[in-house]
Nucleic acid binder design. Sequence first.
DNA 1: CCCCACATTTAGGTGTAACTAACTTTTCTT
DNA 2: AAGAAAAGTTAGTTACACCTAAATGTGGGG
Lengths: 218, 218
Amino acid sequence: MNLSQNMEDYLKAIFQIGHGESASTSEIAERLSVNPASVTGMLKKLAELKLVEYVSYRGVTLTHAGRKIALEVLRHHRLIETYLAEALGYEWDQVHDEAERLEHHISEEFEDRIAKMLGDPLYDPHGDPIPTKDGRLPPVSRERLADANEGETVTVRRVGSEDSTTLRFLKEHGIRLGAALRITKRDDRTHTITVHVQRTRVDLSNDVCKIIFVERGS
Amino acid sequence: MNLSQNMEDYLKAIFQIGHGESASTSEIAERLSVNPASVTGMLKKLAELKLVEYVSYRGVTLTHAGRKIALEVLRHHRLIETYLAEALGYEWDQVHDEAERLEHHISEEFEDRIAKMLGDPLYDPHGDPIPTKDGRLPPVSRERLADANEGETVTVRRVGSEDSTTLRFLKEHGIRLGAALRITKRDDRTHTITVHVQRTRVDLSNDVCKIIFVERGS
DNA sequence: CCCCACATTTAGGTGTAACTAACTTTTCTT
DNA sequence: AAGAAAAGTTAGTTACACCTAAATGTGGGG
């Protein structure tokens, strides 16, 4: 099946929103920065191709075939991100945009070569799982920093954001994959969590804490 | 100026055909595998943008701005080819197709990083010159193997083809950049040139000899 | 110097994917 | 449960870049 870049982007977006559940027209429109009306049109086309299950006004889910393609695109994206970081020295806040454009244009050959060169990595620079060639997703922590208790010490395992400003902020405060965080204070009124990284103190908004995934213990 | 991938391809094609002289509609159509009528349409658009000088029925040349873009695209293409070969172990017959797709989708950042990593190379795996960032083309040999005399020994400096079958053929017979060839026979009736590479003998058609550029002496 | 073959352009049409505006369906609020 | 707000869809356009078929321009040979 030879899909347009646009179709691939839609499938990826549906996968990332839905994660099994159904995605709404407006969520997809938001993520892809297009008009909701355009989404409706595309969903019909994808449904024709049996890549999604689409019910008017009710949302959309991926079929098995659609999920497979979404995972392939995601594999490309995350392998490229990893490659840019490991082989070309990109920072984790720079890799997303570059990968977003390249993911649709690399060959199977290229995919295989960089995967091999990197030692078939399972996680990208943000800790997101890289789908394997046969379409399995390595396990990830779903434990959010936002849900950790005062006094606990946790290890950063994943940062579920591609926003470069957020990523740069975290990097500058020593919050990177594998970093140990001690939660020193939860202020539920100001929706702020105070953590210590090494010996420095950082205040984090609740929004940021929702996208930082951790493992209990250090 | 933000051009479509297609426009970039047209500018590159015009540059490569014309090399200063004007390119014809049909030459461009042939190179890009599109209908001549489509070329006419695109040339009008490019002329509007002041990227080409176009006179109906007479052909087209690049303006200064158009040439600049063509050189940038060519720089991307050839840097990527070089990178694929040097960093990822591609063979010279595999690099073109991959580069053709990637060249339009890499950032300035990516260009700079691979150029630096490669030590700002001046020639790609085929010996073609890589335009510098400020738009200069490193010098190349224009001496064709087809024009060399019986008994001469020459060094291969450039192979002006991206056709993978041709490139594979040459590779398999030891004809690579830097190889020393001794012209042992010219048969002007069968349009064939016989050369010796190391100790093995190879018969080359005149067509092939026209795209192999050499330097006199070994 | 005229005519013909070939090159090129014009005209009209296709498919993709976006947009806006207007309409319909669903969901929330009271 | 009614009506308003939000979400989603339909209809009609636009832009891009391709195509085919028909018309037109150009240059060389008789």
